[in-house]
Design a protein around this nucleic acid. Structure first.
Lengths: 242, 242
DNA sequence: CGGAATGTTGAGACTAGTCAACCATAGTGG
DNA sequence: CCACTATGGTTGACTAGTCTCAACATTCCG
């Protein structure tokens, strides 16, 4: 369990949050150290969770130790939306991060509140939609396509910039287990992308995207597409008017 | 779209359904021919669906034609639970089958009905749970483990018998695309299971499970488990008391 | 500076994919 | 009733991509 060790050593309290982050959900906010467990597989499903700060991951293990990372959760993301009495996934903090704990009982009592309902339902269906993509990728893509998909997704999440610099909070093993690859293959594919000029790796945890267009095309798993040329991915409409 | 061609040629009408199948959901029931599309990827999300009879599949394609079967739906299953304005998945009839069409508008109007809400939410989270398993399997399992997982799942769905005979309504290509394998590998693995005495294949579409215990162990992806011995999978408690 | 953890690179093995031939079954029409 | 065909399924030979194991490099931290 997440152990009520809310050691908020100088971390921002709930007061600092943007209002949009915890709308009409009153929950306890708890901080987790890197690697610390929020819930473990098999724990009773007492709460929902919402990320306040930092990065979390949902993982699952086979009996013989193979590991699959099911999702990464960033601020604003809901998680813990599982049916039945026990959690199927373990949720852990990737780096030092904070989470709002939202007791399920409270929601059950408010089952008639349409806003709560649609928020929960929306969360579940949105997770489902993402998972469809994820599964498609794992089931049918090459190593290159998988990593390209991952980087493209991170770039999209991180906001609008056309050549974003991504800070990878997770380590290679997490990426590998998220993409269904071995850590070595992930590493080799990073190197490959660097050698091809698609990215820069100023630091192991820092990825500068140089050719988002090329990555996006790879990610789309469209092997019939033209083999990459140097057009801008999304020319500014303002500039185009000149 | 699903074309209002409800050609109910001698098929059971909704009156024949067990009451539990369409509880308090009043929708039009439509029949589909084998391979016929219920909704296509990109169609607007106007309805939810509930399988009445037969088998449906949810599929997705990459731009270059690779195919992934996301799920099979059997009677009682909900589907069409997707967010946003358009469907991500194509839903098709595998064999000749019927589906209840449940207009979303109707549900929105009944957002305050707690029963409808929990049914929808339950459907979404249950789909999510299944998908977690599915993804774990696709991401981290060998061909043998995947097929064992598939057969074990079908056996569990088909009811209690300890040595069930499964009728596969779907063809090998569907199984392959569901498991993220090639059709040849699926075929070879069937043959392998037969040669090992785990199953019998009286007909291509008929699988007799001989060693559910062994399949279940394979499916659990537990490579450290004892290498299969002939204990009964689930000895009858009554018999054990003797 | 030393040690541990993390990441990269290389060589070889192995699983599953691809391509191609073959087989089985179910219709269809003479 | 029997070719003839179409479809779906199986099998074999070969290939390619990824994993495994091992060595090495780098970064982090005490």
């Amino acid at each position: 369990m997440y152990a009520l060790s809310h050691h908020n050593e100088g971390l921002p309290a709930i007061g600092e949050l943007p209002a949009s982050c915890v709308p009409r959900f009153d929950g306890t906010v708890i901080s987790f150290a890197s690697g610390e467990e929020v819930v473990g597989a098999g724990d009773p499903t007492k709460n929902y969770f919402r990320v306040i700060r930092g990065l979390f991951r949902a993982v699952n293990f086979t009996p013989d130790g193979r590991r699959q990372v099911f999702a990464f959760y960033t601020p604003g993301d809901f998680c813990g939306l599982e049916p039945d009495g026990t959690h199927q996934l373990t949720i852990e903090a990737v780096d030092c991060a904070t989470m709002a704990i939202l007791p399920r009982d409270g929601y059950r009592l408010r089952m008639n509140d349409p806003e709560v309902n649609s928020a929960l339902f929306e969360g579940a269906t949105r997770a489902l939609a993402l998972t469809i993509d994820h599964m498609m990728m794992i089931g049918r893509s090459s190593a290159e396509e998988r990593l390209a998909w991952f980087l493209t997704m991170l770039a999209a999440r991180s906001g609008g910039s056309r050549a974003p610099v991504l800070e990878l909070a997770m380590q290679r093993q997490d990426i590998a287990d998220y993409l269904g690859l071995s850590i070595e293959t992930v590493s080799r594919t990073f190197t490959l992308f660097k050698d091809r000029g698609l990215i820069n790796l100023p630091h192991k945890r820092l990825v500068q995207i140089l050719r988002l267009d090329a990555l996006a095309r790879l990610a789309a798993a469209d092997r019939d597409a033209a083999p990459i040329h140097l057009e801008l991915w999304e020319p500014e409409p303002a500039a185009a008017a000149a």
